[in-house]
């Protein structure tokens, strides 16, 4: 059974901007699903339609077999959304926020569960402070607790780790993995592709409102397991006609600092030397060079032609440009 079945979903805002175009996507029950896309791709619009803060213009959505648009009330109880924007009622403490949210979802506040959430998200020592006194990271964790307080079957996380430090991020993911293992379906949007690669078992990529691909992570990774040779020349290169010809077999991709060449059959070592030679022939000896396996980020780049911002590690940006 699918947790979510999205069929031909479209959204055109009043200003004429088409944010979603004919999106069809199935999210299997129990999956940990990554929804990726550059800024402005339509991820948040999609999530906001599921959360009922934005209206769909066309299409249908079924949640655990029920129609989202006609059975909103039932469906809303199954969904917990961690929104991108952090906002809290300045009059309340974290504990009050959680109790009120629980009640509004029709669940009598379960204080054991509320304490458990506060403990897991390391807010227990701040549970009676006013939300105004919490740090940015604490508020973001409180958002997560708020989304989980009514024990939803589908948790939607819209960039939940922006501004959360590495250690806490890890613990947050451990918690999410546990929830997922106990049967909760999780839909995640993130800018950290390595996170998506590590956590998620399915991935969909959208760009400019359209779905580019959606499939199991393993299948996706299986397809992209090629390697690159990257060259650093310390400047942006230009491809002459001869260079284009010489490098054609290596699907060259220019980066800010140099160039990346794809290695077709690295295992038998047949193209490594040729690729290196070809680069040297065209541009001379590089300052630096290295070998890198393609990852989700490269696929993303290939499909969308764009990079995700907020990149995490320098090595990636070094190699992929």
């Amino acid at each position: 059974m699918n947790a979510l079945e999205i069929t031909a979903l479209g959204k055109v805002y009043n200003n004429g901007n088409e944010a979603l175009h004919d999106i069809s996507l199935n999210i299997p029950q129990g999956s940990f699903y990554a929804l990726l896309g550059p800024n402005g791709a339509g991820k948040s619009t999609l999530i906001n339609i599921l959360a009922d803060t934005v209206r769909a213009s066309s299409g249908a959505v079924s949640l655990f077999g029920r129609d989202l648009f006609t059975q909103r009330s039932w469906c809303k109880r199954q969904i917990g959304v961690v929104p991108q924007e952090v906002a809290f009622d300045p009059f309340f403490t974290p504990r009050e926020v959680l109790a009120f949210t629980s009640g509004m979802f029709g669940c009598k506040p379960d204080y054991d569960w509320i304490d458990e959430l506060l403990r897991r998200l390391e807010l227990i020592d701040h549970s009676v402070k006013n939300t105004r006194q919490l740090s940015g990271g604490m508020r973001r964790r409180l958002l997560v607790a708020q989304a989980l307080v009514h024990k939803p079957k589908l948790v939607i996380l819209d960039e939940p780790t922006a501004g959360v430090d590495v250690e806490l991020r890890r613990r947050l993911w451990d918690f999410m993995r546990e929830l997922n293992a106990s049967g909760t379906t999780i839909l995640l949007t993130t800018h950290y592709l390595d996170e998506a690669e590590e956590l998620c078992d399915h991935v969909a990529i959208i760009d400019r409102g359209s779905l580019l691909t959606a499939r199991p992570m393993q299948e996706m990774m299986g397809e992209i397991a090629s390697s690159y040779l990257w060259f650093n020349y310390g400047k942006k290169l230009e491809l002459s006609v001869e260079a284009v010809e010489t490098l054609a077999a290596f699907e060259p991709r220019l980066t800010d600092e140099g160039i990346c060449l794809k290695l077709g059959m690295l295992e038998d070592g047949s193209t490594f030397h040729e690729a290196y030679q070809a680069a040297v022939t065209c541009f001379g000896a590089p300052r630096d060079a290295g070998l890198r396996r393609e990852d989700l980020e490269d696929v993303f780049l290939r499909l969308t032609g764009k990079q995700l911002d907020n990149k995490m590690n320098g090595e990636n940006s070094h190699a992929a440009g």
Partner: peptide, 14 residues
């Protein structure tokens, strides 16, 4: 103004 209205919209309240 503070963006909290989304919680009201997300809650299962008619």
């Amino acid at each position: 103004v503070m963006g909290m209205h989304i919680y009201l919209l997300m809650a299962p309240l008619s």
